[in-house]
Nucleic acid binder design. Structure first.
Length: 415
RNA sequence: CGGAGUGUAGCUCAGUUGGCUAGAGCAUCUGGUUUGGGACCAGAGGGUCGAAGGUUCAAGUCCUUUCACUCCGACCA
């Protein structure tokens, strides 16, 4: 994409009402726009990052048998009454409205109820199990206080997956597969080192649920980790008894701030019993289904990545989620040089390289500052100076390493 | 929802005890000079001073109400 046609612009100063580093950088660099507290628009560059993250998640969910679809954001009141989660006393994040005829509706803050209702039409036999479905959905939550930029919004995108299993064994098998898949996701987006499967409150069905917590000062949670054993326990379930069960001592644990990027639950059969989802087993008996719920906050994950990968100059996108792999920065002015820059741009595009081409007529300093701020993994500078020797300059955003590459060798150098 | 703070140009901000046509920097536009780390010179456009009501000869400034935003806390299946 030519930067001269990109409608967004970078800013030198950020709005003073934005304190979170992730939002400051993303706004400065033109990736997001703040509509109101906790509500952000994703601009072209930001959208590309979101899509990159979604694609990684999609691949890993498909790999363990997930089927993607998408539900509605508008939900019926009746379903939530069946599980006693419609009342504002029980769930305080509801956005609610009403149809013209007075029928009350809610805007989905979660989808366990409606999806299970939907599944009643399709899951009728033990032969239909297990079934795994997931979606990327905009969740709406009327948070009392939005904070931390895109890490805790009132409107955000979540990948939520649900498993319908015949029995505890079948459920557990998938649950374990999800843990592995999630770890792959966080590893692929560059957060593997600092993301821990964390024991957390499990609710009524199991002793623990599992959270995926990424170490970051911007986080809202506190967990205790043992980096060597890669064991982590949420502060809320820390006790001598728990530590003993996990085989670690307090002294071996380090207290860290984290952001929850994923969470998985076992609902047992309770939810399906409440909503009336049962199937006929091999013996011809009607039995309730085991439900599991698995979430990854896509937009939050983007925020955590920015918090994690940035320096004083701007964002440092991991290759896997960068909006473009290459930022081609042209300092060329003369017609012949510009033609060479254009040619290189086309060549890169032709080779399937995602390239943002800074063809703007602005001074070099501004281009470099913008390039650092926007944070593509590789910057290729083409200028009269470099072309004198028939070369371009490669500069890697993360390491700062610079090398000169012959004009003709650029594409092959990238492979 | 409790506590604290802030609303003046697209962004960051100044504006004294109420007083003349509301300012600066950045950004934008025009012309010129520049061209490897956010340049410089000259000029231009851009404002119902968050909103509503009130006091006053006179309100960005004082009073009342209200809305929004930020931070701390509580909350976060």
């Amino acid at each position: 994409m030519r930067q001269s046609s990109l409608f967004t612009k970078t800013k030198k100063e950020v709005p003073k009402d934005e304190a979170a580093k992730n939002a400051q950088l993303l706004i400065k660099a033109g990736f997001i726009y703040k509509e109101m507290a906790g509500v952000y628009a994703y601009l072209p560059l930001g959208l590309r990052v979101l899509e990159k993250i979604k694609q990684i998640v999609r691949e890993e969910m498909n790999a363990i048998g997930g089927q993607e679809f998408i539900m509605s954001a508008i939900q019926r009141k009746e379903l939530w009454e069946k599980t006693d989660r419609w009342s504002d006393d029980n769930v305080d994040v509801w956005f609610k409205s009403a149809l013209k005829n007075g029928t009350e509706i809610g805007f989905g803050w979660s989808h366990e109820e409606p999806i299970t209702e939907l599944m009643k039409q399709y899951l009728t036999s033990y032969r239909d199990l297990p079934t795994y479905v997931y979606q990327f959905q905009t969740k709406l939550r009327n948070e009392l206080r939005a904070k931390s930029g895109i890490m805790r919004g009132r409107e955000f995108i979540m990948k939520d997956m649900y498993s319908y299993s015949l029995n505890p064994e079948q459920h557990q098998k998938f649950y374990d597969a999800v843990i592995e898949a999630y770890l792959k996701v966080f590893s692929r987006v560059g957060l593997g080192e600092d993301t821990y499967v964390t024991f957390a409150t499990g609710g009524a069905f199991t002793q623990f649920s599992h959270e995926f917590q990424t170490i970051t000062d911007a986080g809202e949670d506190v967990i205790y980790v043992n980096r060597e054993k890669h064991i982590a326990v949420n502060e809320e379930v820390m006790s001598d008894k728990v530590l003993e069960e996990l085989g670690v001592t307090k002294e071996e644990l380090e207290k860290v701030k984290t952001a929850e990027v994923g969470n998985i639950f076992n609902f047992g059969t309770v939810k399906c019993e409440q909503l009336g989802l049962s199937i006929v087993d091999a013996q011809g008996q009607s039995v309730p289904v085991h439900l599991g719920s698995y979430g990854i906050g896509i937009t939050r994950l983007m925020g955590v990545i920015v918090e994690h990968f940035s320096d004083e100059k701007g964002i440092v996108w991991p290759k896997e989620v960068a909006p473009f792999q290459v930022h081609l920065v042209s300092l060329c002015k003369e017609e012949a040089d510009v033609a060479k820059a254009d040619a290189l741009y086309k060549e890169l595009q032709g080779a399937g390289v995602e390239v943002l081409y800074d063809d703007r007529d602005v001074r070099p300093g501004e281009k470099f500052a913008d390039s650092d701020l926007m944070g593509m993994p590789l910057r290729i500078v083409i200028s009269p100076r470099s072309l004198e020797s028939g070369q371009v300059e490669f500069k890697y955003r993360a390491s700062g390493e610079e090398t000169m590459v012959a004009f003709e060798q650029v594409v092959s150098e990238l492979n």
